[in-house]
């Protein structure tokens, strides 16, 4: 079910967001298809994170609308959007600093309500299910060594992975990753690409922001480029790499 019949899972229409006089997102319309890994690139301050924030309900757009799976989701609260299956990671993954990696993976998917969250039988079945799923995800991401490590003691790259693992526990249909490769050591990037492809293959639609162009152009099937709040180019990685406008923007910036 989609509004435009084109098979897009998520569509934004004319999103606009200004902070004071600073226009962070300027008339952004894009369609996101589940069958390809989508990337969003652009220099610092281009508005990429703000766009994620709008889609996931953390910022309210001044204008424009969003549909997910054919339903309007504009202006919904973050928890509501998450429950519909749009889950994001954060550029700076603070996580839950008082918890271990394993514990933070038990947060998602459990009943959070005071009453239902404490019912014995349901709780027990849920506990078994959750810990099984967590073990599997940690295994897949190669994090089993760090299972009992407190989140605030993780190295930057591991913290990114642990955050990915935690958000996967929410069983997203669409996962928005904000700079998953930041802080990951260069030797582990190809492994990260592999993991991300696995996630996509498991049926989760993906959109990735990152500054590491070789990583992005390798993992993505389709790339949107933003600058000054606008989408200035989109296409396959090859097309984007060859696009003079994109090159100019990136030469101008320091990346």
């Amino acid at each position: 079910m989609t509004t435009n019949g084109s098979g897009a899972l998520l569509s934004t229409h004319g999103l606009y967001k200004a902070f004071g006089g600073n226009v962070a997102v300027h008339d952004v319309s894009l369609d996101l298809y589940p069958d390809r890994i989508t990337a969003l690139i652009g220099p610092n301050g281009a508005g990429k994170t703000t766009l994620f924030n709008i889609i996931t309900g953390y910022e309210r757009a001044d204008a424009g609308s969003i549909t997910f799976d054919g339903q309007p989701v504009t202006g919904m609260a973050p928890w509501e959007i998450s429950r519909r299956g749009v889950v994001r990671t954060f550029q700076t993954p603070v996580g839950f600093p008082t918890m271990t990696v394993w514990e933070s993976l038990q947060v998602a998917g459990a009943s959070h309500n005071v009453l239902t969250g404490m019912m014995t039988n349901r709780g027990r079945r849920e506990t078994a299910e959750l810990s099984e799923r967590a073990d599997e995800i940690l295994q897949n991401l190669g994090l089993n060594e760090l299972i009992d490590t407190p989140v605030d003691e993780l190295a930057a790259g591991d913290r990114k992975l642990a955050e990915l693992a935690r958000q996967l526990m929410a069983q997203p249909r669409l996962l928005l990753l904000d700079e998953p490769a930041a802080g990951v050591n260069p030797g582990a990037i190809s492994r990260l690409s592999e993991l991300i492809r696995d996630v996509h293959r498991s049926g989760i639609a993906l959109m990735i922001i990152d500054h590491n162009l070789s990583f992005v152009l390798d993992v993505a099937d389709y790339v949107h480029t933003m600058a000054n709040g606008r989408i200035i180019a989109e296409g396959t990685p090859e097309e984007i790499a060859a696009n003079p406008l994109v090159r100019q923007v990136y030469m101008g910036a320091d990346t």
Binding site: P78, W79, S82, R88, G95, F96, M99, V107, H112, E126
Partner: peptide, 25 residues
């Protein structure tokens, strides 16, 4: 030991992250 308790600690630790997991803070 319940999902409720973990949700409490999660929202205390990091409200945006808790929201992103569907917790109605």
């Amino acid at each position: 030991r319940s999902g409720y308790g973990r949700a409490l600690r999660a929202m205390r630790d990091n409200e945006p992250a808790a929201l992103s997991l569907g917790i109605r803070v």
